[in-house]
Design a protein around this nucleic acid. Structure first.
Length: 109
DNA sequence: ATTCTGACGTGGG
DNA sequence: CCCCACGCCAGAA
């Protein structure tokens, strides 16, 4: 792993850790905030690699529509949804209800 | 080396 | 609102 890549991953993780309980954000919002706008896919890749980091609330990161696109990367079939519902967020058919209400913008720390 | 595939997002139609 | 093409970049085949 290169230094630049490590830096990218660390930035993503540092930000992901700041997502408040009961709130969610998007891959694109994270990418934009760390100065990698347009590379939202890499944020998803970073989440994929965050497996071994229990401190990273990967379930609080969804796509721009509020869909749980990464649910298949969690154990079981519904773990991601259950983690979110455990924080008071309703999910119906992989779609977060009242998404705008729970969305957390990184710049508004 | 080339092509394809994604935990994505935007812009045009 | 939906659908499509494209940009993005790391890995796998």
């Amino acid at each position: 792993m290169h230094d630049l890549e490590t830096s990218f991953f660390e930035k993503v993780y540092a930000l992901a850790r700041q997502i408040p309980f009961g709130r969610v954000t998007t891959y694109g919002a994270i990418a934009k905030h760390i100065g990698a706008s347009g590379s939202a896919r890499m944020v998803g890749w970073a989440m994929n690699a965050s497996h071994s980091n229990p401190d990273i609330p990967a379930h609080r990161v969804v796509n721009r529509k509020g869909l749980l696109t990464g649910k298949h990367h969690f154990e079981g079939t519904n773990l991601m949804q259950q983690l979110l519902e455990n924080e008071g967020i309703k999910v119906i058919d992989n779609q977060i209800q009242d998404f705008e209400k729970y969305f957390w913008e990184p710049s508004t720390n």
